[in-house]
Amino acid sequence: MTTASPSTIAQPVVVLTHYLPPYMARVLFHVREQVPGLKVLLSIDQEPNRHFGDTWQGLDVSVQKSLMLRRPWKHSAGFQEDLYVHFPYDTYTQLRRLDPQIVFSYELGFRSLVSALYCKRYRRKLALCVCVSEHTEQGRGASRGRLRRWLLKQADAVTFNGPSCRDYLERFPGVQHKLFHFPYAASDLCRYEGPVERDARDDFTLVCIGQLTARKGVLEMLESLCTYATTRSNQTIKLELIGTGPLQEQIRQKQLPSNLTVNLHGHLDYNEINSRLSRCGVLIFPTKADEWGLVVNEAMQAGIPVIGSCYAQACTTLINPGTNGWIYDPLIASSLSQQLDKLLSMQHDALTEMRHAAQSTVKSITSQASAGNAIAMFRSLL
């Protein structure tokens, strides 16, 4: 018979979330090293617009009985995007079966509502994982606000992913003393292992990684690059565009100035992305709304400075302008051009310093460290 290590948490913990992307899977994998009774309930194995593959290795995962609806998200930043909303209707039954001491539920919707009712009925501890920013939550309806207020009141602990998320949560009464930092961290299985230094010929090669949708701001970025190239005919500009989405064909057919090259790569796996990053100089992240933006972490870990949107919490949190990147407003046509001028005026040695600064910025933000924060929260609840 084996006994648990004194450092482990013996009580069972259940995590409920929609699906399991690689970065989240690795954090939970490290959590399970200290919480052997950890079980994960998913609303769906993977949403239709995701291409993760199998990420469940080393975890005890079950897919729930769930309904999935598609609804439009209209934002004041001027985009509309379909979101998938999940209703895992066997949540209460699953929690009764697993009988956890702690329920850790992602988001402030249906699964967290049922989790809260279960914890209230059986006197279990409820932790809520909240991943928002003040910008993404603009225009949310009053009924959603009332539900969130009630859920946050029921919770014994609430996690936040960054400063803007914390500021948003602190608007709700009684939440401040419940807060725990639970940051996004790039997967430790998908890390860039190449050199930080780049060939000088790649210093100004731009790369953009993400879904090709209206929310991600890729069309506005491309239009700004066209304008920039047209007004600076002696400057050659190269963009590597990695990702898929409904705007892919429109981007492919875009007429470009002769001094602007756009290479459209489609979907790449992490190994292919890392290989591509070794030949790129700077990431552009042009999103109109992102509650974080993990690609910023991943780029910095690869030694790539970031020209990032002010509407992504990762950018406003991690970028120190002029040190490891620059922040711009993708809704202002001239804003990207101003940051490109700063980039293109830099010498190779100065850019190399920025690369090391970028990597240093995220050095401590690891899967293991994020897992440690979650484990500390669980211990505080027992």
Rank of each mutant, 00 (worst) to 15 (best):
N234S: 12
N373L: 07
C226R: 11
V15C: 02
S370R: 15
D349P: 10
P72K: 06
S133A: 05
Y328N: 00
P36S: 03
L225G: 00
E107K: 12
P100H: 06
Q64A: 15
Q339V: 15
T8P: 03
G245F: 01
P330Y: 07
L98Q: 05
Q248S: 13
R140T: 11
V103S: 05
G217C: 11
S337T: 06
I237P: 00
R70W: 04
F110E: 03
M300I: 02
Y311G: 02
R279F: 03
L108Y: 04
T287L: 06
P173C: 05
I251T: 03
E298V: 04
H75T: 09
R276Y: 10
E353D: 13
K74W: 11
F285A: 12
L67E: 15
I307E: 03
S309Y: 00
L294H: 08
Q154F: 09
P321L: 11
L117D: 04
R140D: 15
R96V: 15
V14T: 07
V14P: 11
L219K: 13
L343Q: 02
S7E: 02
I327C: 01
E193Q: 09
L351F: 05
W292V: 02
E249A: 06
D156H: 15
K178Y: 08
K65N: 15
Q235F: 06
D45N: 12
V306C: 07
I102N: 05
I251F: 04
C165K: 00
R198C: 10
E134K: 14
E170G: 12
I332N: 13
R166E: 13
L343N: 09
D156N: 14
W56S: 10
T8C: 09
N259C: 11
A374M: 12
T236L: 14
A333S: 15
P21D: 02
D329K: 15
G141R: 06
Y228A: 10
T231L: 14
M377G: 03
T91H: 15
A116N: 04
